[in-house]
Computed example of a mutant assay.
Amino acid sequence: MLYGAMKISVGAGLKLAFRPWVEGLEHVPARGPAILASNHLSFSDSFFLPVVLDRKVTFIAKSEYFTSPGVKGKLTAAFFKGVGQLPVDRSGKRGAGEAAVRSGIAVLERGELFGIYPEGTRSPDGRLYRGRPGGLARVALATGAPVLPVAMIDTEKIQPPGKVMPKLMRPGIRIGEPLDFTRYQGMEGDRFILRSVTDEVMYAIMKLSGQEYVDTYASVVKKAMEEEAKRKKSGGGETAGDERPTDTPD
């Protein structure tokens, strides 16, 4: 009920203001479980993708979005619940990964759509980074659900990290043909299989998005950027504000 009302109100506004274009909607099944594995360029990715779909898609979100104090915090929590986000506590990396996997499996077992960002965090510079195998591949192999590669286009230009006001322009969404990994079911404990599945999905996303691929985790690059910004600030050179702002994983 809340999701439907939120999608109508927010979705109508997003469509009217930004007019997102979409290709490949025919690949999304009309019913039954499926995983939408997307690149991650902007905070707004989790809103633009659901807007163009007729079905509800559930993403994982930081628990901080649901627990922040004050009026703003309560409004943010209500909004994220309304658009179908699931909170995951990321204070412990291993526990967070297990929680995300369990949540994804539960969504798919209900016959719904589950959205995930294999990179684990937003790209710091618009390039496509190495996918993390712990979530996407494990959920896919545990459920047998097809994986649909998704490419978000130009969303980082609408609201770059650190910017409050969005720029009015048309983002795009490309949805690729479903990938079937049922041949690997029961092998989610094999790290080589998990890596192979993840790399296959990331290659499909790269082909759809046209992004340059970097065989490094985005979180490693972000950490290096943050440390460089701190070094420049403490050394009396350029300030951290002169660097492109980085964001926390989401």
Score class of each variant (00 low, 15 high):
Met1Ala: 15
Leu2Asn: 14
Lys7Gly: 09
Gly11Trp: 04
Ala12Val: 05
Gly13Ala: 12
Lys15Phe: 03
Lys15Pro: 01
Arg19Cys: 14
Leu25Ile: 11
Pro29Glu: 06
Pro29Arg: 03
Gly32Asn: 03
Pro33Ala: 01
Leu36Pro: 02
His40Met: 00
Ser46Arg: 08
Val51Gln: 09
Arg55Trp: 06
Thr58Ile: 04
Lys62Trp: 00
Ser63Arg: 10
Lys74Gln: 15
Phe80Lys: 06
Val83Cys: 06
Gln85Val: 03
Asp89Trp: 03
Ser91Ile: 03
Lys93Ser: 14
Ala100Phe: 05
Arg102Phe: 04
Ala106Asn: 01
Ala106Met: 02
Phe114Thr: 07
Tyr117Glu: 01
Pro118Ile: 07
Arg122Gly: 10
Gly126Lys: 09
Arg127Lys: 15
Arg132Gln: 12
Gly144Pro: 00
Pro146Cys: 08
Val147Glu: 08
Val150Glu: 11
Ile153Leu: 13
Pro161Trp: 03
Met165Tyr: 06
Pro166Glu: 11
Lys167Met: 07
Arg170Tyr: 03
Pro171Trp: 03
Ile173Met: 11
Gly176Asn: 11
Arg183Glu: 15
Tyr184Thr: 14
Val197Cys: 02
Val197Arg: 05
Val197Ile: 09
Met206Leu: 14
Leu208Tyr: 08
Gly210Ile: 08
Gly210Pro: 13
Gln211Leu: 01
Glu212Gln: 12
Val214Leu: 09
Ala229Ser: 11
Ser234His: 00
Gly237Cys: 05
Glu243Thr: 10
Thr246Gln: 11
